[in-house]
């Protein structure tokens, strides 16, 4: 069984009538995702182009359709509130695609997630895909194939690159997750490694980090302290990034001499993780790691 997204997932799209929301709802349906409803405040009672019912609130959508997960395509100024609404409606999984949410808005969201029933992915992320089952997000489905390797990444297109390399070598994926490029995110590497650890389908994990923060170092410690024995292959983007400059993602910044790629690569190597020197060898490195088990 995959993690986060499986045959039981019934998806609600928050912001379904927006340009992005409408486009990706269609894409998700075409991939086979069980999308059951949309939410746009003020448009309750209407249906979208795919015939999906639209509701004013997440709770109403969930009550009427049995939706248990949501994806958010809401403008950044309102996105944190959309997440809080999804948590209040007890969604099991909330994937927030929206980019550009103020950090101060995310602080109370993190607090609301604590002790709730909701697992949040993102914001500012491509989403979650369980190949062959469904996708929640904006990634191209066709580059994936069902299989046994999990992918967790702070990036978008770089994740596609890694997945493409795996698929080219015949290595399928269990569940691929873009956790997002912001300083505050719903789930970090450790949260998801815990799920992969208990997932029978997942036999190895690709971990793609980048400069900024210390999530990769913390993941390295967790892996060794918790006896995570499935092979892990890592790549850290931003070896050539200058300090003090935000490299696109709000979270990708080396500040105060902390969060460099070199530090992260050293921390991962120190616990025996295969660290790729270049992004071109991610697939190859995983192939070797799986063969060496």
């Amino acid at each position: 069984m995959s993690i986060l997204l499986n045959e039981d997932t019934r998806l609600i799209v928050q912001g379904i009538t927006g340009k992005e929301g409408a486009f990706h709802t269609r894409q998700m349906l075409e991939y086979g995702t069980k999308v059951v409803a949309g939410v746009t405040p003020g448009k309750g009672g209407q249906t979208d182009d795919n015939g999906l019912p639209i509701f004013d609130t997440v709770q109403a959508a969930a009550d009427a359709t049995g939706g248990n997960s949501s994806v958010i395509f809401v403008p950044p100024a309102f996105a944190a509130d959309a997440v809080l609404e999804a948590i209040a409606a007890r969604m099991k999984l909330v994937v927030c695609i929206s980019e550009g949410i103020p950090t101060a808005d995310m602080v109370p969201v993190k607090l609301a997630l604590n002790g709730s029933e909701t697992r949040m992915i993102g914001p500012n992320c491509p989403g979650v895909i369980t190949p062959g089952v469904g996708k929640i997000g904006i990634m191209p489905g066709f580059i994936h194939r069902p299989g046994h390797v999990g992918v967790i990444s702070r990036s978008g297109t770089l994740t596609y690159e890694a997945v493409h390399q795996l698929t080219e070598r015949g290595i399928g994926q269990s569940t691929c997750i873009g956790i997002g490029g912001d300083p505050i995110i719903g789930s970090n590497f450790i949260d998801l490694l815990k799920l992969y650890k208990d997932d029978d389908q997942t036999e190895g994990v690709v971990l793609i980090g980048e400069i900024g923060g210390s999530a990769e170092e913390e993941a390295a410690n967790w892996i060794v302290e918790n006896n995570f024995t499935k092979p892990v292959v890592a790549f850290i983007a931003g070896q050539t990034a200058p300090p003090g400059r935000r490299m696109g993602h709000a979270g990708a910044i080396i500040s105060g001499g902390k969060g460099t790629a070199a530090d992260k690569m050293a921390a991962l190597k120190a616990v025996g993780i295969a660290v790729c020197e270049t992004p071109a060898v991610i697939g190859e490195t995983m192939e070797k790691a799986l063969a060496a088990r």
Binding site: S155, T157, G181, E210, G238, T240, G248, E277, P279
Partner: peptide, 15 residues
Amino acid sequence: NGAGLAMATMDIIKH
């Protein structure tokens, strides 16, 4: 296209 891939591209150029 994409910040992560852009950084990774810079890295492989250097490599």
